Computed example of a mutant assay.
Amino acid sequence: MSVVLHHLEYSRSTRVIWLLEEMGTPYEMVRHQRDPQTFRAPPELAQVHPLSKAPTVIIDGHVMVESGAIIEYLIERFGSETLAPANAKDRPAYLEWLHFAEGTMSGPIIFTALGPRFGGLGPMLGGFLGAEVTKLLDHADKAVTDHEFLVGDRLSGADINMAYLLEVADASKLLGERPALRAYLQRLRERPAYQKSIEIGGPMIFAAMGG
């Protein structure tokens, strides 16, 4: 078994470092830096996968992108006893939350966070996305109110996939008055494997995100 993670600074690939550290799975990491002018990935990453995206992982010779798919597959291979639901009744909610982060939540959060760096979103788009962000964060806040994690009583791949979007929201001052969601994010930050991922991969979020 061999796992090679192509990690790009300030990117979603930090969540895969975190996952691998949580599972104690051996891996090799190849680190890439963004272009200082365009902030885009370097040409070397496109040589690994044509989309030049991070995370990109190579598992036993197979190249994968897409965070949700990578997390789901790695857990199936190496961490199903600890990072997937302990019982079958939680699996539908687990899969829904696992893919919610990138499937539904990512677009409104990322566009809203980046808006100030591109001159703003304008009243129509800004209003639409603002309402979406409120709805999405309220939904996540409700899920962790009186619950330590998104699904069941322990950390799962869904929490690992969600953390990046919450870090973006926090850095962009979007979390607002949501004490349950803030406490949940702090619990994730306090995990040793989360802290190790930052130590190894650098900050998850670009400091200037949100303006």
Results as ranks from 00 to 15, higher is better:
H6C: 04
H7Y: 11
H7P: 09
R12S: 08
V16Q: 09
W18D: 12
L20A: 08
L20F: 07
P26Q: 13
R40G: 09
P43K: 04
Q47F: 02
Q47I: 04
V48T: 04
V48G: 01
K53F: 01
A54D: 02
P55G: 05
D60Q: 13
V63S: 06
V63L: 05
S67K: 01
G68W: 14
Y73T: 11
I75L: 04
E76D: 14
A84M: 12
P85N: 12
N87H: 11
P92V: 10
Y94E: 06
G103N: 10
T104Y: 01
T104W: 00
M105V: 13
G107T: 06
I109F: 01
T112E: 00
F128P: 00
A131K: 00
E132S: 08
H139M: 10
D141V: 08
A143M: 03
E148S: 15
G157I: 08
G157Y: 06
G157C: 12
G157P: 07
G157Q: 07
D159Y: 09
I160F: 04
Y164A: 07
L166Y: 13
L166R: 15
R187S: 08
L188K: 08
R189V: 05
E190N: 10
Q195N: 04
Q195R: 13
S197G: 07
I198C: 07
P203C: 04
M204R: 09
F206P: 01
G210Q: 09
G211Y: 02
